[in-house]
Design a protein around this nucleic acid. Structure first.
Lengths: 252, 252
DNA sequence: TTAATAAATTTGTCCTACAAATGAAATTAA
DNA sequence: TTAATTTCATTTGTAGGACAAATTTATTAA
């Protein structure tokens, strides 16, 4: 029933493939030749949008879908399995499937394997972190509270004025900053990027292209600046703090 | 063969579930009870990492995996289907499966349906765009070229000093900026965020909370600033340009 | 009317089967 | 012997059947 409104579009999409077995190897297929599973996945996602489904809405059962689309239940299940992975749908035993709130970062999370990503992607992620760190000033100052600042102080007090801090301390400090933006997605996103960032930089650093930064800005300096300064001052300090990284992008 | 090194760990993980049919409803299962497909998906991703597989490496075939893991081929195929969607693996007919370079943003792309995302997620995305726009200055100035600037000029020349520009012009201008960062992932990421950003803002705007910005900074102003100014000046101009959005986050 | 029981529905899992595709092997021709 | 062609074997993609578990719904009993 639920699928009725989409049947026409679906049939249109599938009709070209109905007599697949005869033509598949005759027609010169475009590079992006899609499997049935790919197509069903796309059809379902479009169907969700077209029909304005929202979390909680129930979906037709697997058999109904597979019959309407004229594909095997296996194909439908593979497509649904993908959507389930992304958090778009949930199945409650016997109650059938319902729409859910997808996890925005689930897809990226699973894919963040430095060995698999292209060099370009790795470089992009490296830079993305720098962009983000430079962009959070306004949010930090708009949302800093005494409580937040005290917690941040607790983090930096362990590091004193150290120029070189451990990986854990680095993550603790910047992680706390991300948290203070009040943006959970941003925080999670940054935390995902961090290991990749380090992976890229270590690789780069091991190539022996080092620069000594004259007057390094420590975490403690940043803290003071966040407490007493302005967004612009903080950003300038952050730039200084990250200068060794920024140096890598200007080709120096 | 390829799976041998992982078999022990795998068996350990699966052994608790071998006699599933008898115990499933007796033992109080933790909330995050995983399906076989979920577990196989995790096992495979771990296996990729543990064994340091890189793009091009070939994988065991489906039967081998399903036998080694002692699950049905369907379960294995559902897990593989997920990984294929993320671009982690590819299958070449008859040659079997090989590792591939995953598409970093494929997962997010599929999930960006404003009707499904939580209000929190939508707000986060909205803010993320602002963070990114504020963070790109250094990259723009590091990578601007005469060619780039000319292309940007072509975009703004169509808009003159207009304060209100169409959706297309908005996308064209800012999209060009993202492009000029020289970071393809960033550009793609921003372009994904844009529609969501607009969706959130329109919703917000329709609630009638408007502010007149005294001296609006136009796209043309930004262009001039990028051409002749400094990163800091450009960022200040960008803040002004986006002020109507920033106003929404300070609770005004 | 309420409680207990039976039936029906739907997902998760396993299994079998087979077409298509293609690399490898075998066979044939020069 | 070598080259070309044919045959064979392997692996994925797809279809479809079967059944257990779980839970909603319907039915029956008190």
């Amino acid at each position: 029933m639920l699928l009725i409104s989409a049947v026409n579009a679906i049939l249109r999409q599938l009709s070209a493939n109905q007599s697949m077995s005869e033509v598949k190897h005759n027609t010169l297929e475009p590079l992006g030749s899609l499997s049935m599973t790919d197509r069903v996945e796309n059809i379902l996602r479009e169907y969700f949008k077209e029909n304005g489904l929202i979390p909680g809405d129930s979906l037709p059962n697997e058999m109904e879908i597979s019959q309407k689309l004229n594909v095997g239940r296996n194909v439908v299940r593979e497509a649904l399995s993908r959507l389930r992975m992304l958090g778009m749908i949930e199945t409650r035993p016997r109650r059938g499937m319902i729409m859910a709130q997808p996890d925005l970062l689930a897809g990226i999370e699973k894919v963040l394997n430095p060995l698999l990503l292209s060099q370009d992607n790795l470089k992009d992620i490296f830079e993305l972190r720098l962009i983000l760190e430079m962009g959070i000033s306004e949010f930090l100052f708009a949302r800093k509270t005494d409580k937040n600042l005290n917690e941040l102080e607790a983090v930096v007090s362990k590091q004193k004025d150290a120029v070189v801090v451990s990986r854990e301390e680095e993550v603790a400090f910047h992680g706390k900053l991300y948290e203070m933006t009040g943006n959970d997605t941003f925080k999670r996103f940054q935390n995902l990027l961090m290991p990749v960032f380090e992976h890229v930089f270590t690789e780069y650093y091991n190539k022996g292209i080092h620069h000594n930064i004259p007057n390094p800005v420590t975490h403690h300096d940043l803290f003071i600046c966040l407490k007493q300064g302005t967004p612009d001052e903080f950003r300038k300090a952050m730039y200084k703090h990250l200068e060794v990284y920024f140096d890598t992008i200007t080709g120096r």
